[in-house]
Design a protein around this nucleic acid. Structure first.
Length: 468
RNA sequence: GUCCCCAUCGUCUAGCCUGGUCCAGGACACCGGCCUUUCACGCCGGCAACAGGGGUUCAAAUCCCCUUGGGGACGCCA
């Protein structure tokens, strides 16, 4: 079988948003699954809106996601010679023509058509005029007036379009820059793209493009149009739905594998399976199981999936991604045994890396502050005696192993007649400043005597000051 | 307005192609409970859907038609 070649063609008019990322992921996964090729192409023919900053932002997002390409990036603005050649071919074969109608005239045409209950389109005024190239002339494709164009879509199935619904669309602007529908086709032909997976919003372009393939005498690629991602109001995803850009999710503490997992699963399924690693996806991803209906972006589910990915990760793999979040709190870390243990205790209780960093603070801060409610409830006179006894015993203890700590606590329980909970909560507040934390034995073992004893003493003092 | 697409719990979905095993399964969220030194994790249980109407058939979530609803496209943007 022919090698599968897919592509992702973003236009650099902004950052990479989650919808675009999803189609990139689909194309990339399919290419990897089929052991084919994945091509990156930057569609920058809109010179007004394209920016280098956007190009950089797209690369950054793709890299963070771990989506790599085998060919490119190609830039359309560097391929004008090729386009010119193909446009000439169409003109020479009488399949395209120059048109001098002004944008204003065309506006009027559209309004008339609309008023008549028709589809707004160009009326073909210049179609048979045989005009020559001139300053303000655009080039239009001479589309068939009758018949139908059929799109065989691997996702949506068989779609039929009446050719009289299509008009003679512009393939080259008056400034000489070719337009989208044309350059896409020329690029896909010359780059040997045989599988085009793209958003639903392109279905209407497909018959136009098919006509172009035929005019150019090229075989058709396989088309697949994936449904859109909607916001929670069922409208197309946009800024007002919250974060859109891929890197915003990185900055909120999501793991790339979790975002990919979520985005793929939104619109594609593999039985009841919800959790996928990157390699699993490459292994089982296919086009057949892409759904046909649009999906709503649900942050809660992404969050849950991110928690799962955090839990499934090995602590060492989380060190680097976690660094920037700790840094924000002024904490610089390096990969040592301490951070690894810290991460391990936080994995089952973090939905994002931001959560994790926040919860990790007490492990690093030299001077922890107490949450007011926690201190009021637990750092009170009744806790004084057990905490004092515990402090003495811990100061004398050399090996902070789980079993040793358990024995120490048991001894305190015996001496005071208190239950573990009565002792553990004040200690937890003394050590972390809060009422919620990883297991008390765990944190004592990790913190070690150098941090534990001073914190306990500080708590004792706090209680005594409060008494007086 | 015209054209195209879609329609299962609040959300993502399995099932639909190859009708019966589905008084519809899983996941997120939500609500109970268990575990427990806290918070989580985990486990157990609950709530909750085949848009509506017609057909076809012994039998329809599954096939056909209509209605309704939703989305997308109609650019010298991509």
């Amino acid at each position: 079988m022919e090698q599968i070649i897919t592509r992702f063609p973003p236009s650099p008019t902004g950052y990479l948003h989650v919808g675009g990322a999803r189609t990139a992921i689909f194309n990339w996964l399919y290419a990897r699954h089929m052991q084919g090729k994945f091509v990156l192409r930057i569609e920058d023919t809109d010179t007004e809106r394209s920016t280098q900053a956007s190009v950089d932002a797209i690369f950054e997002a793709l890299q963070w996601l771990g989506i790599d390409w085998d060919e490119g990036p190609y830039f359309q603005t560097q391929r004008f010679d090729i386009y010119r050649e193909y446009i000439q071919k169409l003109i020479d074969s009488n399949q395209a023509y120059y048109c001098t109608c002004s944008p204003e005239q065309i506006d009027i045409m559209r309004q008339k058509a609309m008023a008549a209950g028709d589809k707004p389109r160009y009326d073909g005024s210049c179609r048979e005029k045989g005009l020559d190239k001139s300053d303000k002339a655009v080039v239009r494709f001479k589309a068939p007036l009758t018949g139908t164009t059929v799109v065989e879509d691997v996702i949506k199935g068989h779609m039929v379009f009446q050719n009289d619904e299509l008009d003679d669309f512009i393939i080259c602007r008056s400034d000489g820059i070719p337009t989208y529908n044309f350059v896409v086709v020329v690029d896909d032909i010359t780059m040997n793209i045989n599988t085009v997976i793209r958003g639903d919003d392109h279905v209407m372009n497909t018959p136009k493009q098919i006509l172009l393939y035929k005019a150019l005498g090229s075989p058709l690629p396989t088309f697949g149009h994936v449904p859109m991602v909607l916001g929670n109001d069922r409208a197309r995803l946009s800024k007002r739905h919250g974060a859109m850009s891929v890197t915003a999710y990185r900055d909120m503490g999501f793991l790339p594998g979790a975002l990919i997992n979520y985005l793929v699963r939104l619109g594609w399924s593999h039985g009841d399976q919800e959790f996928f690693t990157r390699d699993e996806l490459i292994d089982v991803f296919n086009l057949e199981n892409i759904g046909r209906s649009a999906g709503i972006f649900d942050l809660d589910k992404l969050l849950a999936l991110n928690a799962e990915h955090i839990m499934a990760a090995s602590p060492g793999d989380l060190v680097d991604p976690l660094k920037p979040f700790l840094k924000k709190a002024g904490i610089e870390i390096e990969e040592d045994d301490y951070i690894l243990q810290v991460i391990e205790t936080l994995q089952p209780r973090s939905k994002t890396l931001e959560d994790m960093a926040e919860a990790a603070l007490f492990y690093y801060l030299s001077d922890i502050s107490y949450e007011e409610k926690a201190a009021r409830k637990f750092l009170k006179p009744a806790a004084l005696e057990p905490v004092k006894i515990l402090t003495e015993k811990l100061a004398a203890l050399e090996d902070y192993s789980h079993s040793n700590l358990e024995e120490v606590f048991k001894a305190v329980m015996d001496e005071t007649g208190l239950k573990l909970g009565k002792i553990a909560q004040p200690v937890r507040v003394a050590l972390t400043g809060r009422t919620a934390s990883p297991g008390i034995f765990e944190i004592i073992a990790i913190l070690g005597p150098n941090r534990v004893i001073p914190r306990l003493k500080k708590a004792i003092q706090f209680i005594e000051n409060r008494e007086s």
